[in-house]
Every structure is written in structure tokens, then in C-alpha cells.
Nucleic acid binder design. Sequence first.
RNA 1: GGAGGGGUUCCCGAGUGGCCAAAGGGAUCAGACUGUAAAUCUGACGCGCGAGCUUCGGUGGUUCGAAUCCACCUCCCUCCA
Length: 428
Amino acid sequence: MAFFQDLKARGLVFQTTGDEQFEAWLSDKPRILYCGFDPTADSLHIGSLVPLLMLRRFQLAGHTPIALVGGATGLIGDPSFKAHERALNTPDVVSKWVSRLRTQMSQFLSFEGDASAVMANNLDWTANVDVLTFLRDVGKHFSVNNMIAKESVKQRIEREGAGISFTEFTYMILQSFDFAELNKRYGCELQIGGSDQWGNITGGVDLTRRMNSAQVQGLTMPLVTKADGTKFGKTESGTIWLDAKKTSPYAFYQFWLSTADADVYTFLKYFTFLSVSDIDALEQEDAEREGRPQAQMVLAQEVTRLVHTDVGLEAAERITQAMFNGEEGALSESDLAQLSLDGLPSSTVARAELPATLTQLLTDAGMVTSGKQVKDALGRSAVVINGKPVSVDDNANPQKCFAIDSAMHGQYFITRLGKKKVHLFTVV
RNA sequence: GGAGGGGUUCCCGAGUGGCCAAAGGGAUCAGACUGUAAAUCUGACGCGCGAGCUUCGGUGGUUCGAAUCCACCUCCCUCCA
């Protein structure tokens, strides 16, 4: 299937410039494109995965991707569809985040061959532009009338109780300048981004035409949404990050594994490189089968492998296998040690230092955020230690719950809270 | 600089002297049902095993008693200059 047709079949094309002609333009010859990522944290999260994988899709199709990290724009803050003005981060912090993101982004692209990827940082061409030059050469091309008409800032302008600073309002100009600059430096002629970036992208298209007399294009991808309307990418424990130190491969794998049926085939198209026909076939197969679909597992495997490589995937699968196949009693001592290394949440406590209550212990271990939740779970027999449910009466008696004779291999206690939370305690 | 309107527990949003740890909705967590899914129902949802303790932008004050009244401060919004 032709590249652009494939993107459309995956549902990855939300809007493009040039309407009908876009496809012909794209298939005409290899193009140079870019996508920007602002440093708003010390890691990217799965929200950035769609555009990141999109760059890779383009590269695999023979186009040259430029991954831009927003060392400059990150200092300003993108107001697009944000309800509130945000606090500025210090240059120091932003520059640290920039270097983290660079490393993360580069793992998804290839830096070899004809379509070798390029890494760029917009601070390189904005840091030394003085205000007057910027206002005269760049700002003059923007009509405030047009800018305030953009949907992306509309709620900030119209909404009661909100507002927008000049700083954030200028963001669009800064990003537009990036496109013009990348066009000049690298011959970049396409910018891609999430659908919330449409306003910024068209701003760049206009500016490039005015400053460089060049016609460039834009393409946006849909925002990832869930069928039940809740926010994608967040759980109780927070954001799902790409950094293994912030979200372990196991937690990452589990996140994808619990995708709702209503979303899973869409996500397979968004987040994996499996062909659309394979995904459709899988959907067909799942529909004919009784019980649990295979799709979630395929999704979890594919995405975990993409982000955390085979090593991370294997670790995640080892834990999942051991914890959710009802065979935890059969685990050997070395298996248990491996689970901990693989990223199963675990901690070591000295027997003499066990706290007075289970609520305290499980809260300290990070299984829950408050003792109340443990109490609630205890009342429903939802706390299980080495296969044995613990009751409210045992709360004040951890010594009994973690008695040596109920330990696995003399010191291990697999503690579950609910169906999904597992923690390995080593009591010595 | 002037006039007015706001800042409530993760989010939205009620509450204008005691009945308020604070309505309602959302999110989240746990249970039942299932398939580590969805939907539905149930429970929890500031912290604490508990007695109890700490909250309603901040600091003081009035009062037996304040999220609610007063003063000052701070941040945000709207309009005027």
C-alpha cells in the first residue's frame, strides 16, 4: 500500500495542507520533514509516541526526519488548548530536560543511510536573535487579528477567568520561525504534529512563504482519545513515561495490556508497525473467539519492544507470567530474585523493623497512597500475602502476616492488593 | 493608577457564622460480575489502626464558634485610564 494511503488507513491523518494535492506532493519525491517536542519534563511520555513513531514511519518510507527539541519554545510554553497560563521553568532546568529528550528521541530514528535523521534544537537559532530584529523581521509578518482568531487560543481569550500573557501568545510566532528556519537550513518542507498544533503549523507555513518565498506543507495527527472519554495515558500512579526509570518496562507493559477492547485495534494502528491488514485480521480472529482477545497482548508486546527493546519486554513478560498465571507458589529462589531485578516493585525490610501496622507497611512500600485504601482492601479480603488473604484483624500484626513459616524460601512474601498491585517483600 | 469580580479538598463546582472534613459531578482505588476489558451495581476517596488531628490563597483579628464576618497582603480575571 502506498505510504500515505497506509497512514490514512491507520487513522493517523487528521488534517493536511493543500487538501487533495497533498498526497501527490508527498509521493512525488522524498521530503524533509520535522516535528518538534518541547521539554516540559525530564522525559517524554506516551502522548509523544504517536508523533515520534510518525517520524519513523516517514523515515521508513524514505523521507528525512528532523527531530526538533524545543530548547527555546520550552522556555516560553505552548498555550494551544491549555486552560491556564503555566509557570515558566528556569533555563537551567529546561536545558537539562533538552538533553534527556534528545537521547530519548534518537532511539526511534536511524542516523544512517540516505534518509539519515537530523537532531535540532531551536535554541540554536533563537538564542542570539535580538528583540528588534525579531520584531521587525518576523513579527511584522503576523497579524494579531489572525492570531487571536485561532481556535487554539480562543478559550484563553474568551473564557471568563482565564487570560493569556504576551509571552505565551508569542509562542506561535516562535514556532513558526522554526519552520522557516528549518526550511532555510535543511530544506525542510513539511511539519507534522498533533491536531492541537494545527494553528502553529499553519502559522509556520505562512511565515515560510513570506520570508523564504517557499511553499511548505503541514500534517496533523489525531489526538489519542479513549472510547470511554477518560484521559489517555494517565493512571492512578500518574503519567506513563518513556523513561524506564520513571515507568518500569513492566508497568509500561501492564498499561498497554489493560487497554479496553473498544480502543485496542485503534491503538494497534497508532502505536505499532504491524500492517493494517494484519491488525484487521487479528480483530476478525478475536471477534470469533470466545473470551479474552489477543489484541491487548500483541499491543503490549509491540509497544514495549519499541520503547524498551527486547530486554525490557522479556523482563516485563517474566513478571507478568509469574504474577498472573497463578503459579507464584512454584517460583524458585532465583526466580524471585530475578523478578525484583526485572522491575517488580519490591523492598527489603528487617524483621525487627516491621512497622506496627500493615497499612503503614504497604503505604511506605508505595502500593497505595494512603492507609485508608489498605483498610478498605483488608475489609474486602483484597490483601493477599503469599496466597493467603489477610483480614482487618491482622492489620496490627505484621509479624504474624509475615511469619517465617509462611515465607517463600525463608524470606520472600508476594503481597497483592487487589488484582493488579503486587509487591515483593523480602523480610530478613 | 481607578472600578469591579474571583482564588474551596486531584479536576470541575456548591457552600456566605454552628447541622461542614465541607453538596454534586468527573477522575481514581477496592469488591461483585468478567477476560488483569467494557458496562453495571456496591464501597472508599484530607491524614491516622484508633482516640483524634490538620484543611477551604496568606497573615492577623472579631466571635463561645469562621471556608463563611473584618483588616492587611498576595495571585488571577474584566472594564476604565
